[in-house]
Amino acid sequence: MDFSFNKQINRKNTRAVKWDLVKTLYGAEDVLPMWVADMDFQTPPAVTQALTERAKHGIFGYTFTDNALQDTITNWLSYKHDWDVKSSSIVYSPGVIVTLHMAMQTFTEVGDKVLIQTPVYPPFYDIIKKHDRELVKNQLVLDGDKYKIDFKDFENQLKQGVKAFILCNPHNPIGRVWTETELAEIVALCKQYNVLILSDEIHADLVFAPNKHIPIAKLDPSMTDNIITCMSPTKTFNLAGLQVSYAIVNDKQKREALEKTFHKQGLHILNTMGITALEAAYLEGKDWLVKLMEQLEENMNYVINQFANRKDVNVFKAEGTYLLWFDFRALNLSQEQLKIFLEKEAKVGLNDGASFGEEGTGFMRMNIACPLELVKDGTNRIISALDRRDSNK
């Protein structure tokens, strides 16, 4: 089937966070939103068809998950990541962040130290702080054009009594896909210091060749019971509003404890349409995903090439996700000045780098999961604003 990713879909007046909150967030209607991490592409036709057929039924009562759904998930993980997962290890959830909140309640206590690698997805901070845990940072190190893990600092932090570590792989916002060597060292250190790994792998399917996503729970059988992996089809197939995800929890005691916490919060039933979409996406979305990755790579290469010869901005080539990390530090602007420049002068709405932690000061994040013409528009707006700025000096 020929999938087109060039059609511009009008998302306004659909209560779309990205498009219908533009004036609220940026103070003007003419700002191009390239921030929140959903796509401006329609989901695979097979998903739309499945949802349409389910809607035609007309009854949306309580829905349960069954063996067929479990098999769909395990088959997908085997196909995409060469990962053999037991069906019994699956715990369903409305979302990855929900699961991380539930895991924080279940496996840590007030005052426990929880480690994250910064700059990182803003909700990670909330997950720790809102449960009154102690936030511990392992700052990622920028080595040339690539971020790396400071393993000496990582171990030093673990030595201080860290109870849990939240991994982001692929990493949001920097776009790193951690290698097997890097992941193996993480596992070895967490094993040595008895640290629970909570792995957010929601972008696992969105990886550019030759990079390869490796579920961290695959690496050491002796650590599998101390790793909880959170995954979902929502980023992959643009289903975020349907709120469906799952966690892989191999250890029976941990699985039952986590499920008990979900039940305490009344979060034990999935969205009917979410179930339908997950099943259709994993069963019939493979070819669509191949074409999506081709389009995302074309979009990324366009942006990087346009900024390639500039000294005032550096764009990091993403190994995974559809998010690009921009380094604007050479402009010598404060973070507030940088935001104003992009919003008022370039008329582009990006994610504030400082929202990912103080290590993101001077940086911004761009979402390129949209038709190439929109990517070109946003890119050219920024370049034109930079050129005007230079001419006014």
Rank of each mutant, 00 (worst) to 15 (best):
168 C>L: 14
154 F>Q: 08
180 E>H: 07
207 V>E: 04
164 A>S: 12
164 A>H: 11
234 T>P: 00
248 I>M: 04
178 W>C: 01
153 D>E: 14
281 A>S: 14
156 N>V: 00
152 K>M: 05
274 G>T: 02
196 L>N: 07
248 I>Y: 02
161 G>D: 05
236 T>N: 10
195 V>K: 09
249 V>I: 13
229 T>V: 11
265 Q>E: 12
245 S>G: 15
255 R>A: 00
251 D>K: 12
278 L>S: 03
155 E>R: 15
141 V>H: 15
219 L>W: 06
249 V>D: 05
247 A>P: 01
165 F>R: 05
256 E>L: 13
204 A>Y: 10
198 L>N: 00
266 G>F: 02
254 K>C: 00
232 S>Q: 13
206 L>K: 04
249 V>H: 09
225 D>G: 05
160 Q>F: 03
199 S>F: 12
200 D>L: 07
184 A>Q: 11
250 N>R: 05
146 K>P: 04
167 L>K: 10
230 C>R: 11
202 I>M: 13
256 E>H: 11
201 E>V: 00
272 T>C: 01
167 L>Y: 05
269 I>K: 15
241 G>E: 04
141 V>T: 15
145 D>L: 12
192 Q>F: 01
208 F>L: 14
214 I>W: 01
215 P>G: 07
154 F>D: 03
161 G>F: 13
277 A>M: 05
237 F>N: 08
160 Q>D: 07
171 H>L: 06
267 L>G: 02
153 D>N: 14
